[in-house]
Design a protein around this nucleic acid. Sequence first.
DNA 1: ACCTGAACACCGTTCAAGT
DNA 2: ACCTGAACACCGTTCAAGT
Lengths: 158, 158
Amino acid sequence: MNRDDIVSAALEVLDTWGMEFCSMRRVAGALDVQPSALYHHVANKQTLLGLMAERIVAGVAVDADLMASSRRLRDAMLAIRDGAEVVATASAFRLGLSELEGDLAKQSSTDLARTLLIYVVGHTQATQLHRQASALGAIEADPDLDPSFDRGLTILLS
Amino acid sequence: MNRDDIVSAALEVLDTWGMEFCSMRRVAGALDVQPSALYHHVANKQTLLGLMAERIVAGVAVDADLMASSRRLRDAMLAIRDGAEVVATASAFRLGLSELEGDLAKQSSTDLARTLLIYVVGHTQATQLHRQASALGAIEADPDLDPSFDRGLTILLS
DNA sequence: ACCTGAACACCGTTCAAGT
DNA sequence: ACCTGAACACCGTTCAAGT
């Protein structure tokens, strides 16, 4: 068992149970290992969340088309349950997103990169939470939330 | 003891200890009451967080000057420890922010209101977490983060 | 109606001890 | 070096029982 195995197991637990139940103890259980064993490979849960965020956005290509790049980032986060929440939590602690922010800045400016990143992650997190809540019948579905992503992006990139 | 007392106590605990330690048990302790007593006035912790967010943004005036309105919202959240995180958590669950979003939409459009809100809350949360981390020496201070708020706002409102 | 006290089913993290 | 097992100091929430 190494760091990568732990990140893989954590992402499986996340996708199956959601962020709320993605505990160190459950990740350890998925690896058939004692919780304390994880601490030989990661310093703490925050570090693990950072590594998870890194992996979630790892495949996202950033090019001169900022609109398309933003959509790809969104899709990567939507691909896994509570993906945006993990990225939001980790990026708030400045873990796992620095490379992406750098790539975006190279294509535009530091300010636009930061603003874009805040918007994309924030809107995607709202979308993902809204989908879950409406799937559980806790809230009436807002069919306009999804298409509003592109419109907000247009406002930002105009 | 009523709902408002609980919200007040919760905000005091938040400002003193931070979000991490703002537990139902600690809020109960601040009120010299058993934890279970809280559940006679609020359904659960999520609801309490919504009420806290409501109170944090309660005094924020929204007018035609969207830049000034955004700055006021930011200041209201910065006024209390982890204020932006509470608002972010609650607004993700669509609690306590609907009135503000409505006011903003009246002054502009639904899309701009949503985009603006995501940006202001997201940037302020990053600022607040960065300040704490650098105060603890866990990270080197970025003197440009604070002034970058207005520049991102300009990008959004241009 | 409002609160207590005890319980249930969990957490993250540490650390001596084993291999 | 890597993992176990037990422990520490907590969580949110429920619920019978008291007043």
